[in-house]
């Protein structure tokens, strides 16, 4: 039996024992989530971001959008009416780090994808007050002026792959993605073709309205337009989701 006095007079021992006590609290709350079957909903459609969307996510983080915008619609009536269906755990399973956020100076963005046109996003990001007079959001004019740097896109995908996001490099990984997401999506997740895929998506969709250039605006709007659109809720009975709580 360790004596009270010997713990209090030994700083090293005190630190170790304190860490053990605190970590019990964390372990009890976190560890069960890994083996409880109903933590993450089983739904179709959720996929990792395409290369262009991924660069958009990086810009979203670089500009600190998460400081004012959450991406987490809670299961409350007022949030449902304003933002749409509450967020599922499955919808952010490939986000590292997740963008749930905890501060809503601006509106939640979990389902902003498809809600407004690309033109609206461009006008709004350049000067939010041009479309929403009472907005206090800053202007982000450099997004439209800065060419997108995608030289390290493969490295960025490899880094996320290490955290468990199923981007593919080998034929075997690619085949696994075809089986899980279908060939069309699996092609977008292929690290070896990342640059071509990024260029193709940017040029095909021309998110920023400047056909000749691929800018940071293209990437950010591509990311915003995919948020919350991956799950087709019309395919699921609402009762199904209650089984996951």
């Amino acid at each position: 039996m360790i004596k009270h006095e010997s713990i209090e007079t030994n700083a090293g021992l005190l630190i170790i024992l304190t860490m053990i006590v605190i970590s019990i609290g964390g372990l009890v709350e976190i560890v069960p989530l890994f083996y409880i079957n109903t933590t993450v909903e089983k739904v179709e459609g959720v996929r990792p971001y395409s290369p262009l969307e991924l660069r958009g996510r990086d810009i979203y983080q670089r500009e600190g959008c998460y400081l004012c915008h959450s991406q987490m619609i809670r299961p409350f009536r007022d949030e449902w009416l304003r933002y749409g269906h509450y967020s599922l755990a499955a919808e952010s399973k490939y986000d590292h780090p997740f963008q749930w956020g905890s501060k809503r100076t601006g509106p939640d963005l979990a389902r902003v994808g498809g809600k407004y046109s690309n033109e609206w996003h461009v006008a709004h990001l350049l000067n939010p007050r041009s479309v929403v007079p009472q907005s206090i959001m800053p202007n982000y004019p450099w997004l439209l002026e800065t060419d997108l740097d995608y030289s390290d896109i493969a490295e960025r995908m490899r880094a996320l792959k290490k955290t468990g996001v199923p981007y593919s490099e080998t034929q075997e990984e690619y085949d696994r993605n075809v089986a899980e997401f279908g060939a069309e999506v699996a092609d977008k997740l292929d690290i070896l073709n990342a640059e071509e895929n990024l260029m193709k998506q940017a040029l095909d969709n021309d998110y920023d309205g400047q056909r000749s250039r691929v800018t940071e605006m293209d990437a950010l709007v591509a990311y915003l337009q995919v948020l919350g659109t991956m799950v087709d809720f019309s395919k699921y009975n609402e009762g199904y989701f209650t089984e996951f709580r």
Binding site: P75, W80, Y86, E238, G239, F241, T242, E243, R245
Partner: peptide, 14 residues
């Protein structure tokens, strides 16, 4: 269909 489940926020919302 009527569905009964244990207490949870999603069911309460519905």
């Amino acid at each position: 269909k009527k569905m009964t489940t244990h207490w949870n926020t999603r069911a309460l919302l519905l």
